[in-house]
């Protein structure tokens, strides 16, 4: 290994170490914010920017846990997936049922008109 290669490798390792340090510090900061946010009394999020960030971190952590649970249960649906299609189908079924409701109501009104005027002759 030449001296130049050794220096380059050292710098690269240094860069990775710096990246790991930033990550670790951010992670510790994040965990501390989540803990502080979880300990907040209701309504304390409005006390200032730091309290807001703590509260928001706790909310994001809660959402993360929900996401983990949903992923474990296979509930998260990318567009075009089965659950997404089921939701679209659900909306469509509602439209059809709504239309059936309208038709039933119109049929009742039509029956009333026919009863009032006498049944029309067949054919």
């Amino acid at each position: 290994m030449t001296g130049v290669e050794s220096v380059a490798e050292d710098q690269f390792m240094r860069f990775l170490a710096a990246w790991a340090l930033v990550h670790e510090t951010a992670d510790e900061g994040w965990k501390a914010a989540v803990t502080r946010g979880a300990d907040q009394e209701p309504g304390s999020m409005g006390a200032g920017p730091e309290a807001f960030v703590d509260g928001l971190s706790a909310m994001v952590a809660e959402e993360k846990e929900r996401l983990k649970a949903a992923l474990a249960a296979g509930e998260v649906a990318p567009p075009g997936s089965k659950i997404d299609l089921e939701s679209k189908l659900d909306d469509l079924l509602f439209e059809v049922s709504e239309l059936r409701g309208r038709l039933e109501s119109m049929q009742a009104s039509l029956d009333a008109v026919l009863a009032e005027g006498g049944e029309p002759e067949a054919g």
Partner: peptide, 12 residues
Amino acid sequence: QIEAVIAREFGR
């Protein structure tokens, strides 16, 4: 009077 409205609306 209310029953009359119902009977008129549904023919029954």
